[in-house]
């Protein structure tokens, strides 16, 4: 096990960095996209509501691997060439944003209706009330579930291995299939994933308890 690490630490480190990088990028964009669609769902416009619903249901019910491969091999033939890292990160963003939209929507709906009415009565527009009053409170509710989404994101980023995205899984996989030392390689890769996800997971549990 130590051997795997001492002989291949450079490749593994590159993979570790890429996994972190794509997770952070995907988190950032899926937060923006997810919150936007969540707001669509609570706005009093039927059309936006429908668009939001379709977006969420589509990306929630199709495997991430299919979405990622679509961006890696189909999109480049018709629109623009994307390398594995970019294609995978886009797939990851769209997939995760649908889950984040659901989480944020639940958060917004958990904020008391009276708050909106009160804000409107004080002369704020709907959007102002949403931005200044509702969303800040909603985000308090959704921090623990969002943290869990980030953990899922890190785990799901392993599909980059399938589109040559040079993430941790891809690097581990190439090491394993050239050295044949599958058992130890995958354990080392597993430990590297746990370094990111396990502390995060315990921190989220702590936060959940504190906020409850």
């Amino acid at each position: 096990m130590i051997n795997v690490f001492t002989q291949h630490w450079q490749e593994l480190l590159v993979g570790f960095g890429n996994t972190l990088l794509c997770s952070v990028i995907a988190l950032f964009f899926s937060l923006i996209i997810g919150s936007t669609f969540a707001i669509f769902e609570v706005l009093p416009y039927k059309l936006l509501h429908i668009i939001g619903r379709i977006y969420i249901e589509v990306f929630r019910n199709i495997p991430l691997l299919v979405i990622g491969m679509f961006f890696y091999i189909v999109v480049p033939q018709f629109i623009v060439t994307l390398d594995g890292f970019t294609a995978g990160t886009i797939g990851l963003t769209l997939y995760t944003s649908s889950f984040i939209a659901e989480t944020v929507r639940a958060g917004i709906q958990a904020v008391d209706d009276g708050q909106m009415e009160g804000a409107r009565a004080n002369g704020l527009t709907f959007m102002q009330a949403m931005w200044h009053i509702i969303l800040p409170q909603a985000f308090r509710y959704v921090i623990p579930p969002l943290g869990n989404q980030f953990i899922n994101l890190v785990k799901n980023s392993s599909v980059l291995a399938f589109v040559a995205g040079f993430d941790l899984m891809y690097q581990g996989d190439t090491i394993a299939s050239t050295t044949f030392d599958t058992f130890n390689t995958y354990i080392v890769v597993g430990i590297l994933y746990l370094i990111i996800t396990l502390p995060l997971s315990y921190y989220m549990r702590y936060l959940e308890k504190k906020l409850a």
Binding site: I151, V154, K155, N156, S157, S158, V159, A161, M169, G172, D173, A176, T182, F183, T185, Y186, I187, V189, G190, Y193, L194, T197, L198, S201
Partner: peptide
Amino acid sequence: RNLPLLLLLFFTYFG
């Protein structure tokens, strides 16, 4: 819970 399923799958089948 904190490992990717893909890794568990590889580990089960190849490791």
